[in-house]
């Protein structure tokens, strides 16, 4: 197995776990997809194509397709023809459910789509190292773009720089842990420190491509801890799978970059 093949395989298995959880979560709120539910799309707001494929059992079919194919991908990886075929169906079902649902999506779904679609396109089940390297490079580039954009957007924000933004977010029920948020409101210096820690980590993430391997590994471990904290304190459980899923690709891409730099 090539390094690029390994990276795509691990990435897709991690994304498959997240997709599996997301599919079960959506099934558990299936009443919200019914008329009057928050996730229901009335016929008059549907495009002609969506109206054609939307029926009583659309949600069940798409959820079932995601669950079964996610299990196949987890079990066999994506470097076998069976695993790659399952990945194709998983990707179609995942993108279709996002399109069918129309709202309620998040950045984790976007990253999962990027990993799934690009791996389907480079087809790791068939020989072609250059093709796989292209997929790995694309996923790594999107990952670096994601952290850099998020870091810079926080850096230019006065409420992130003074720490009140973080304390405010964590004070909410939807995206926080209100007791911790209020504690940070009472301790503004710590809130500012945590804010700047987040900004520094996200802005510096791009350095993972050029740092020596031990430091790059430390940076990725810090990223994993960051997403674990976001899942526990902010309820961003889907990010815990989708973003670390890109790390194997970032790791392999960093190897390419170091190889280029050393000639």
């Amino acid at each position: 197995m090539s390094a690029a093949g390994w990276a795509l395989d691990v990435a897709c298995r991690l994304v498959a776990i997240g997709v599996f959880v997301g599919a079960v979560e959506q099934w558990s709120v299936r009443e919200q997809f019914q008329p009057g539910g928050v996730l229901f799309t009335p016929a008059h707001r549907m495009s002609r194509v969506r109206a054609l494929v939307s029926g009583r059992h659309t949600l069940a079919v798409l959820v079932l397709a995601q669950l079964t194919t996610a299990l196949v991908v987890l079990a066999s990886g994506v470097e076998t023809v069976l695993g790659w075929a399952a990945l194709c169906v998983l990707t179609i079902a995942f993108v279709a459910l996002r399109w069918f649902r129309r709202s309620g999506g998040d950045g984790a779904e976007q990253m999962a789509s990027i990993v799934l679609i690009s791996t389907v396109l480079v087809a790791p089940a068939f020989p072609g190292d250059a093709r796989l390297a292209l997929g790995v490079g694309f996923i790594a580039a999107q990952s670096v773009l994601a952290y850099s954009t998020s870091g810079i957007a926080k850096l230019v924000s006065p409420v992130w720089r003074d720490g009140t933004g973080l304390a405010g977010i964590l004070s909410t029920i939807d995206h926080g842990t209100p007791a911790l948020g209020q504690w940070l409101v009472r301790h503004p210096t710590l809130s500012k420190l945590a804010s700047w820690g987040t900004i520094a980590f996200e802005c510096a993430f791009v350095l993972v491509l050029v740092l020596p391997p031990p430091l790059a590994a430390g940076m990725l471990l810090a990223g994993l801890a960051f997403h674990a904290a976001c899942a526990a304190l902010m309820g961003l459980n889907s990010f815990l799978w989708a973003f670390p899923a890109t790390y194997p690709c970032v790791w392999v891409a960093a190897g390419f970059v170091r190889g280029l730099a050393s000639g």
Partner: peptide, 20 residues
């Protein structure tokens, strides 16, 4: 972009939602 393939990565910035 009906399939939402173009990502937006700004996450809670520059103006984070601080209310429910």
């Amino acid at each position: 972009d009906v399939l939402a393939l173009l990502p937006r990565w700004t996450f809670f910035a520059p103006r984070p939602g601080r209310h429910d």
